[in-house]
Design a protein around this nucleic acid. Structure first.
Lengths: 200, 200
DNA sequence: CCGCACATGTAAGATGTTACATGATTGA
DNA sequence: TCAATCATGTAACATCTTACATGTGCGG
């Protein structure tokens, strides 16, 4: 049900079409809970059926075409609040890279090293992209965030922004842990190969 | 295909019945890649059909009953080596707790705090249980690991053990990052509530 | 002879992935 | 007028979760 909550949080920033939602999703809350468009549209329909959101046609273009705009309902807001009160369900660990590392004895030396180097690169990119997100929040250049703030009293702005930054900092810490792990691993591999093949 | 690889790595420690595999799974490789029994048994059948493993009946009890024991085939070993050479597919982030934290403005103060406290507890437990795993590896009290080592030349033992410990250390670093994040979050919440309700 | 461990699953449903499909509008 | 963006999905498949189902052997 996290997808549902994620979409609702987006709609608390104001009414949007499915397309807008999908786009905003990918540039904000999607960093915390990813979903492809193909999951978003059907979910919106279901949420409308359950009256968590309200969908209505708005004109589009000149030829009388319409698109559907969605707005969160009172029920939807309650849903968010209830959700926040429920216990988080922790999914059991499933880490492909960790699994591999545990059985590197079946990998060629080059493959093991490549695996960890890739890991390093991957999380370095994560760090960069999350730093970008945090910067955008801090200097208010995130469009959806501006829209959100505009709907709340100014006194609440700091904490609303702070929560988002805090969440991103969590990803940052994870990524940094992964980077440090990969570096340790590369050092370990280095040590093992030099021990096996001492230089003459 | 990680489940498949996980099962194959287990079988490199020696032939086992489905039941043994399931049990050993939960006490070793399952920490890195979780799977319930209901996934394990069908997967074994599929792997047998594809000749990655060999299944044959062995007697059980006194009444001529049998159970099926599985052994990894040459093809299975090749599969493991190929798998290690492939690029890891990184799944996009999906973190319920991070999603919540980002939108704590919709949570009651108590719920937000409870959420982070639970997070802290959860990962403290992870740390303990992983420390246990590492200890078992270091003092050789993990049965499946002993069985594994017995099949390889003594010179390889240190690195085989080291890889497993390295993998667990990754989980440890993750968990420690989560603990630190939760603590930061609790401090943040504390600060926000005292700022909102200054003591008289 | 009773209960726990051994042994082996099935079935239904939720969730997630990947690829494909189609037409309208708008700005250069 | 042509490409990018807007708009909205469907279909097939893989994967994962949860719950249930059933019988044997062995030790006390």
């Amino acid at each position: 049900m996290s997808l549902r909550s994620a979409l609702l949080t987006l709609l608390t920033a104001g009414p949007q079409t499915g397309y807008d939602l999908a786009k905003n999703f990918h540039s904000s809350v999607g960093f915390l809970w990813h979903a492809p468009d193909s999951q978003i549209y059907p979910e919106l329909k279901k949420m409308q059926a359950e009256e968590l959101i309200d969908g209505y046609p708005v004109p589009w273009g000149t030829k009388g075409a319409t698109k559907t705009e969605y707005a969160i309902t009172e029920t939807g807001l309650q849903y968010l609040n209830t959700w926040q009160g429920q216990a988080v369900t922790y999914r059991p660990e499933r880490s492909e890279v960790r699994l591999r590392a545990a059985y590197f004895e079946f990998a060629d030396d080059d493959d093991a090293r490549a695996c960890l180097e890739e890991h390093l690169r991957h999380y370095q990119q994560v760090v960069e992209s999350v730093h970008g997100q945090i910067r955008d929040l801090k200097d208010q250049s995130a469009a959806i965030h501006q829209r959100r703030l505009a709907r709340y009293p100014e006194a609440d702005h700091p904490k609303i922004t702070r929560f988002k930054i805090f969440a991103y900092e969590g990803i940052l810490k994870q990524a940094e842990a992964e980077i440090s792990w990969a570096q340790d691993g590369l050092a370990m591999l280095e040590e093992l190969t030099t021990a096996a093949q001492p230089r003459s």
